[in-house]
Design a protein around this nucleic acid. Structure first.
Lengths: 143, 143
DNA sequence: CAAATGTAATTGTATTATACAACTATAATG
DNA sequence: CATTATAGTTGTATAATACAATTACATTTG
């Protein structure tokens, strides 16, 4: 496929990504989670299997990167290690109460920001946008 | 606004951004433009006013960052400096033939990738998605 | 119009997120 | 049991960014 809408989508996504990143990175991180930490915590909180290795696969990052990111979450008290019973090298991560609170706070902040952008959109369009983004997200996963 | 679709959109965007970034960054950059260079070149090619300062404002990056990025594009021969007639400190950037070719090549590669993800989508949904992304992009600009 | 102030771009330095490689401890396999 | 594989960590290099200092020029003001 190589049509005009596709090219428009590509460009628009590039711009949206740039703008959203520039809002959430390199800004006064008052106390909020960066993007990586946010998604890691969300995955852990959702009960996804959370060893260093499985997180690295899930997020397509190197294990060393995940190791450092999770160490940092642990230092902040947002996650705790649960040693594997079967393998003394390995552990999984559990979210702590404070981690869950921090995650929820961040999620609300971020949703609020998106809500502002969607203010005034007809509910039907918001719903369509949500559906199409989810479909697109699945397409990436399946690719 | 703080409804379920908004929260779903927030999460989905976070995931899509992560996945698309991980595809286009830290990967074998065979010879293709990174995201910053791609959008810079596109802006310059589109005839947008392209001094270091205006690019920094447009992209919400520091002038020093733009200065380095444009130097790098210049070294590769993709842009050339046009000294300002009014201000001997300043210059604007023009795309070169080779820069335009490289941009076009990249645009096609990226569109092809997006096209794969949209393969099998009804044309009507692709069109809707394009429209909604553009509307969302405008909302970010106006915010 | 000369001095002071402001500005465009560059360069120096620090930080951060990443990858890759080397390593340690443990597990699995021949 | 010796070898090989694996989970995680740590060391090191690179890249993109911000902020600070600098340079050369422009603008404003007394």
């Amino acid at each position: 496929m190589s049509s005009l809408p596709v090219e428009a989508i590509e460009m628009e996504l590039s711009h949206i990504i740039r703008k959203l990143i520039s809002e959430t990175t390199y800004r006064k991180s008052d106390s909020s989670l960066d993007r990586a930490a946010y998604l890691l915590l969300d995955h852990i909180a959702s009960g996804g299997w959370s060893s260093v290795k499985s997180l690295a696969e899930e997020f397509k990052l190197d294990s060393s990167t995940i190791s450092r990111q999770t160490s940092s979450l642990e230092k902040k008290g947002y996650v705790r290690r649960v040693p594997s019973e079967l393998d003394r090298r390995a552990y999984t991560l559990d979210i702590t109460k404070s981690g869950a609170e921090e995650l929820e706070k961040n999620k609300q902040q971020r949703a609020e920001r998106i809500g502002e952008l969607l203010a005034g959109w007809p509910a039907e369009e918001v719903e369509q946008f949500s559906q199409l983004l989810q479909k697109f997200g699945r397409a990436i996963d399946e690719a």
